[in-house]
Simulated scan of single mutants.
Amino acid sequence: MDRDKLAAHLAYGLPGTRLSNIGDQTPGWSPESGRCHENARRWVEANPTYAVVHGWLNARGETFDNRLRFHSHSVVRSPGGELLDITLGGTAPRYEFVRHPFDDDHFRDRIIGAVPTVDHLLGPDPVMPPEWFGEDASLDSRLF
Rank of each mutant, 00 (worst) to 15 (best):
R3H: 14
D136E: 11
S141V: 13
V118Y: 02
R67L: 12
V53M: 06
H73S: 02
V76S: 03
A46K: 15
G13L: 12
F144Q: 15
N21M: 04
I22Q: 12
H9F: 07
D65Y: 11
F97H: 03
S74Q: 03
P116W: 06
S74H: 04
R142L: 10
A40T: 01
S20V: 14
H106I: 04
A40V: 01
L84R: 13
G134F: 05
R60G: 01
F97N: 05
S138F: 03
G90P: 00
A40H: 10
M128H: 14
A7H: 05
R94T: 15
L19H: 05
L121N: 06
H73V: 09
L88C: 08
V115Y: 04
P129S: 12
A92Q: 14
L84V: 08
R41G: 12
L121F: 13
D4V: 13
G61R: 14
G89V: 07
D24I: 03
G123L: 06
F133L: 10
G113P: 00
S20R: 15
D140R: 09
G81L: 08
W56G: 05
F70L: 09
T63I: 12
D125P: 00
L122C: 03
I112Q: 11
R18M: 12
P27I: 05
F70R: 01
N47T: 14
R60H: 13
I112R: 13
S72D: 11
L68H: 15
G61Y: 07
P79R: 00
S138C: 01
A114N: 11
S33E: 14
D24H: 08
S20P: 04
A92C: 13
T49F: 07
D103R: 02
D119E: 12
T91F: 03
S78Q: 07
D109Y: 08
T91M: 08
G134Q: 09
M1V: 12
G55R: 03
W132I: 02
V118M: 02
R42C: 04
R110F: 09
P124Q: 08
Y95N: 06
H54R: 11
S78K: 03
D4H: 14
A114F: 13
P15A: 07
D4R: 15
D2L: 06
D24M: 03
D119Q: 05
W29Y: 10
E32I: 15
A137M: 09
